[in-house]
Design a protein around this nucleic acid. Sequence first.
DNA 1: ATTGACTGCCC
DNA 2: ATTCTGC
DNA 3: GCAGAATGGGCAGTCAAT
Length: 571
Amino acid sequence: MGGLIAQIIMKYSKLADVYEKLEFTSSKLEKTDIISEFLKETPEDILKIVSMLLTGQVFPEWAELELGVGPSLLYDTISFVTGVKPAEIKNLLAKEGDIGNVTEKILKKKVQHILFKKELTVEQVYTSFERIARAYGSGSQNKKVKYLAELLSNASPKEAKYIVRIVLGELRIGVAEGLVRNAIAKAFNIEVNLVERAFMLANHIGIVAKAAKNGKDALEKIRIKVFIPIRPMLAQIAPDIQHVLKELGEAAMEIKYDGARVQIHKKGDEIKIYSRRLENVTEALPDIVKMAREAIKADEVIIDGETVAIDTATGKPRAFQEILKRFRRKHNIAGMLEKIPFETYIFDVMFVNGKETIDMNFRERRQVIEEVIKPVKGKFGTAEQIITSDFDEAEKFYHHALNKGHEGIMIKNLKAPYIPGARVGYMYKIKPTMETLDLVVIGATWGTGKRSGWLGSYFLGVRDEITGEFLPVGRVATGLSEEQLKELTSSLKPLIEYEEGQKVTLKPMLVVEVAYQEIQRSPNYKSGYALRFPRVVRIRDDKSSREADTKDRLISLYNLQATSEKKKLDL
DNA sequence: ATTGACTGCCC
DNA sequence: ATTCTGC
DNA sequence: GCAGAATGGGCAGTCAAT
């Protein structure tokens, strides 16, 4: 009997050992082998959980369940278990760069009550995560801390390290869905393509693993169904129009609306809307439901589109922030609906009347869209499109999109199928770049993971000509190579004035050139403005902070963009 | 009843 | 979202 | 070229603290 139980139960320490092995293996093929071997010996009842945990996820993104534990509650929990104060944990994290390693170290130092420990199983860990996720309402934060603390006090330092990383969604072992997907194919001897397709449709790597273990037939049963959302296809950034046209020849160009992705499912009178991450957002969008019911002329469909807020007075799209005010709203939905009306533009179709359309090419799919949708003017329609192989025409369309105040254009391969979840070279996005700003680095935070030991994110200031102050305009953390990060860290270290936890205050000396998509009004930064999608393009060793850009210039650039006079650098 | 910190998810 | 990096 | 990792602004919802 003992033997039977031993077969079903898997110790969590075994999974932790695999995590560790993966963390210190760099070759992807080797990682795939390790995972594949592990999956082979994983009992079927826990294959679903184990596959998910290997990717560092607990619940699929479409599930309503979420842990509701972020850094703050986690540090409280670690503090509760170890007696080390949250402030000290933050200090350790600044030095160490990984909360899992910090937890492991603290626990190793602590003399544990080994006698009272039970050995954790994978199931127990998962069940604890579920309990944490299900705690809600008054007193729930205490409960979450209590459940997680229980888990950590029964864990070995190594087990705790990975539990803690999973809680924050930063497993950092160089394994995610892609490698687990390949490993599933290898473990159960099935072509990767088939596994990949099943994964795109099921959206749950565990379900796919289990099906794969049961053979090809079980995998092939995973099909597109109405009211089961599928991963939206994603676009790649294109260097420029010419480049894409050269590659594709004749292609479709569509306006790139700066809104939120909506995947609309309809069957008869019932309509559901899913977000890009497959959350059900139907309740927040009754106007889209109504319009969809009116505009869609098929009994059963799954379509893909973008919803955007248009200013009814000017016909121009409103700031993206306005969309956020409505998109996941739960209260006063009707009130905001009047203030911020949405227009929805459909650009793809995945399923019509019992049939998958994802294998049709885009030209054919567009035809289906036009047959299925009878536009309701200014409310619900198809994405504005032209088909051309001519550069001048393409450029004209790009300017047309920008003049209408939109984000840019999409260029799509007419021969391509719909590949859910993939960011493949079938869809390109082209957006203008704004004039850059030279801003002063006024602070930073110590990096984590592969940025451990370096300053990894930089607070930026814009110069106030009158007071000589540098007013915060947000932060930047991307655009820098590892070499530049190293260089910046060493040149900023002598400028440190004050340090607390991961935060560092700096003498305002160093200037960086920052690119961005848009200047936004911001209540969060003292300058009153912030940058959307900031990235460093150059370290301005040649400039002093007194030569940095001024608040006046920032404001005039902000005002310019309102009249859509964007500077296009990518033609 | 109000405010603010935290979290998750849009881009 | 953007960007960099190892494979 | 893919996959993974590290990081951005800002919104509403939730819960704790006042």
